[in-house]
C-alpha cells in the first residue's frame, strides 16, 4: 500500500476504502449525468454477478452494472475504432464492457441496456457510456430469465471481482476486503 493514497468513500452500500488509482475517469459521465466524471467499480458480495458503478463525488449516484458477456454478448462487439481512440485502448484485453441494468418493482422484469454499454479501459482507467450505432441493440432488454438460467446451469459463476476471475478485472475492482464496517 506504500505510496498509494487511500480515500474513504461514502457509497450507496456503506463506507468503502479505495485507492486513488482505482478511480475511473469519464470525459463525460453517463447520459443525464454528464457532469459526474469520477467513478469506482465496487463489488458488494463475492458471489454477486453485479457491480456498482459508483460516483466518487456523490454517494447517491451508483449504477448497477453487469458484464455483457454474462448476457451472451462478446465484448469485442462493442469496441470500434472510435472507442479505441476515445479511451486510449492499446489492446482489447484491457477493456471490460458492462451493461447498466434497471430493476423495476417486479424484479422479473429487470432489463439491461445493450444499446449504450459502459466501456472501461482498466489499464488507463478511462470510461465512457457509448451509444452503439446498431439499430438492433435494445435500450431495455429483458434479461432476468436468461440470467437465471445461466446461474442455475453453472452454480459457481465467479463474481467479476472474484479472485478466480482475471487479473485485469480485479485491477479495476474495489474488493470486499477493503470495505470498512458501515
Amino acid at each position: 500500500m506504500e505510496g498509494k493514497k487511500t480515500l474513504n468513500l461514502e457509497t450507496k452500500i456503506g463506507n468503502v476504502q479505495i485507492n486513488e488509482e482505482e478511480i475511473i475517469r469519464f470525459r463525460e459521465g453517463p447520459l443525464g449525468f454528464t457532469d459526474t466524471q469520477d467513478f469506482v467499480l465496487i463489488e458488494e458480495d463475492d458471489d454477486s454477478i453485479f457491480l456498482w458503478l459508483q460516483s466518487v463525488n456523490s454517494r447517491d449516484i451508483a449504477f448497477p452494472i453487469l458484464e455483457v458477456e454474462l448476457i451472451g454478448y462478446k465484448s469485442e462487439k462493442f469496441i470500434d475504432a472510435s472507442i479505441r481512440e476515445q479511451l486510449g485502448i492499446a489492446q482489447d484485453s484491457d477493456v471490460s464492457v458492462y451493461s447498466i441494468i434497471s430493476i423495476p418493482d417486479k424484479v422479473e422484469q429487470m432489463t439491461a441496456n445493450i444499446k449504450a454499454p459502459v466501456v472501461i479501459n482498466s489499464t488507463k482507467k478511462t470510461g465512457v457510456q457509448y451509444i452503439m450505432p446498431n439499430p438492433e441493440l435494445e435500450i431495455a432488454k429483458p434479461v432476468f430469465k436468461a440470467l437465471r438460467e445461466k446461474l442455475t446451469a453453472s452454480s459457481n459463476v465467479a463474481g467479476p471481482c472474484d479472485a478466480s476471475s482475471t487479473i485485469k478485472r480485479r485491477k479495476s475492482c474495489v474488493s470486499k476486503e477493503k470495505r470498512l464496517n458501515s
Partner: peptide
Amino acid sequence: VYLAIKEQNRVAAETSPEDMKNVTRLLK
C-alpha cells in the same frame, strides 16, 4: 434514443442496495 437512454440511466441510478439484494436472491 438519447431520451430513452437518459431515462433508463435515471431509473438505474436510483437502484437501492435492497433492490440489488432482492434480484441476486431471486436469480438463484
